[in-house]
Every structure is written in C-alpha cells, then in structure tokens.
Amino acid sequence: MAAEKSSIKIITLIAADGSVFEVEPNIVKEMKTVQSYIDELDQNTVSIPLPNVFGNDLAMIIEYCKKHASEEETKEAKEEFDFEFVKRMKSDDKLRLLQAASYLNMESFLQFMAKAIAAEIENQSVEFVRDYFQIESDFTPEEEAELRKENEWAFK
C-alpha cells in the first residue's frame, strides 16, 4: 500500500476554468482536500478536478507551495518571496485566495492570507472595512447612530 502510494509521481489538478496543472506529490501535501483524495486512490497518475478554484489562483497557490516546500531556499528568501507575493496581489485576489485556501484546507497558506487581509484593514475606518468586504451595515438606524456617537473615532 505504502509502496504503491510513493510510486505516484505526478498529480494533475484541473481548475474550474479547465486549465491543467501537473505537480509533484510533495507540493499538494499542504492541500489537505487534495491529499485525502490521493490517499484514497492507488493509481500512478492522479487527476483531480477542483471546481471551486480558478486557474490563475491555483497557479499562484502552486507557486507559493513550491517555494515553501523547497529545502534549498533560506528562511529569508521565503520571507522575501512572501512579501513580493502579497505585493502583486489586488484586494480581490486576496479574498479569492483565502476562499480557495479554505476550500483546499491549506492551514498555513490560509493563515498567510488571513494575515495579508488583516494588513489591509488594519488601522482603517469602519466605512473602509465595509467597502473592502462589500458589507452593508445591518444595524438598525438607531444602533448605527449610537455606534457612531460612541465610537466616533472608529468611523474616521
């Protein structure tokens, strides 16, 4: 059983838009959803459809996993990679990647994205956070008025 599993060389991931990614088994270890799928199969090449993740996002996630799975990279190089990785993302990308991380059950990537999103809303006004997440206030007008009165500074 174990021998058969270790013989798996390449895993094929198929994103929602049909784009195909071929990755090494150690890359998908982080993706618990995919890993549990692999664990149930004995074939040499596995093909896994991921209907909730788009190709662009999957490409980024795989890039992140490759960098972090690499034993040759130094801690500093990984930190630098993380920094640049977040820098080139738009707000929407971050939210989508968070969602994908949640779907793929990737613990450390999820925490990484949560941190990146937190950095965007840190030190921002209530209105900014609402706009950022596209949340409409569901407080009653009275509650909203009271909040604004009590925490006037929070809305600036």
């Binding site: 609402r130 949340i135 206030s137 569901d138 407080f139």
Partner: peptide, 8 residues
C-alpha cells in the same frame, strides 16, 4: 474595536 461596528 472598529471591526465590531462593521456589521452584526
């Protein structure tokens, strides 16, 4: 504190 005023 700010986030607690965003929504219920």
């Amino acid at each position: 504190v700010r986030c607690s005023s965003v929504c219920t």
